[in-house]
C-alpha cells in the first residue's frame, strides 16, 4: 500500500537515533536531498501521508482528521491534492545561506521555520466527502556527519515544528 511504502522510505531516511525520545507519539526527522523549498514541500507531503502506528493503519493526516480505523477499513481516506511553499523565499534563502555558513564552521545550521500549505480531499471511493487545508511549519538542518566509512558527508534533514488543520469543510451534496 502506498502509505506503507512511504513509511518504509521514511524509516530509511530516518537517522539511526541511538536513543529513543519522548517521541513515542512524535515523528523522527526526515532526511532530505537538500533544503531547497521543493524538497521541503515534498517532505511535508510524505510526512502527512505516513502511517504512524501500524495498529491503526491511519496516516498522520487521517489521524488528525479523526478518521477512525473502521472508517479507513471501509474505504475512507485522506488524499493530498496540492502542496505549496508559503513563506517569503528571500528570507528563507538568507536563513539557509547562514545555515551553510554555520555548517562550514563545524556547527549545525538550522533555518528559520518555513510555512507550507497542503490541501486535501477526504474521499470514499469516487466520492469526495470533505476538503480542507493544513498549515505546516518546518525547519531544515544542515550538518556534517560521518558515514559508515568515517568520512564527512553533508546531510540535510527536515523537522516539522507544527502541523495544523486550518480549514476542513464538508462537500455540498
Amino acid at each position: 500500500m502506498k502509505n506503507q511504502i512511504l513509511m518504509t522510505t521514511l524509516v530509511l531516511f530516518t537517522a539511526v537515533a541511538g536513543y529513543a525520545n519522548e517521541g513515542e507519539q512524535r515523528l523522527q526527522s526526515i532526511g532530505t536531498i537538500s533544503c531547497d523549498t521543493k524538497d521541503l514541500v515534498r517532505a511535508v507531503k510524505i510526512t502527512a501521508d505516513t502511517v504512524f502506528l501500524t495498529e491503526t493503519g491511519l496516516t498522520v493526516l487521517e489521524e488528525k482528521l479523526e478518521i477512525t480505523k473502521d472508517q479507513k477499513s471501509m474505504g475512507q481516506q485522506a488524499d493530498i491534492t496540492n502542496a505549496e511553499f508559503l513563506s517569503t523565499k528571500k528570507d528563507y534563502t538568507a536563513s539557509l545561506n547562514k545555515a551553510y555558513k554555520i555548517n562550514q564552521k563545524g556547527g549545525v545550521g538550522i533555518t528559520i521555520p518555513a510555512s507550507i500549505k497542503l490541501t486535501y480531499n477526504v474521499v470514499k471511493g469516487d466520492t469526495v466527502l470533505s476538503k480542507g487545508e493544513v498549515l505546516s511549519t518546518v525547519t531544515c538542518r544542515v550538518e556534517t556527519k560521518k558515514n559508515v566509512q568515517g568520512d564527512d558527508t553533508l546531510k540535510h534533514s527536515m523537522q516539522v515544528t507544527s502541523f495544523e488543520i486550518t480549514k476542513d469543510f464538508e462537500e455540498k451534496k
Binding site: 530516518t14 537517522a15 539511526v16 537515533a17 541511538g18 536513543y19 529513543a20 525520545n21 517521541g23 512524535r26 515523528l27 523522527q28 526527522s29 564552521k105 563545524g106 556547527g107 549545525v108 521555520p113 525547519t139 538542518r141 550538518e143 556527519k145 534533514s157 523537522q159 515544528t161
Partner: peptide, 22 residues
C-alpha cells in the same frame, strides 16, 4: 523548537574545542 533526532545534538567540537554558541 524540539529536535526529534536524538542522535544529532547541536553540540559539536571544532578542532577539539566545544562550540557553545547555541
Amino acid at each position: 523548537s524540539f529536535n526529534t533526532d536524538y542522535n544529532s545534538p547541536m553540540y559539536r567540537e571544532v578542532n577539539g574545542k566545544a562550540d557553545l554558541s547555541f
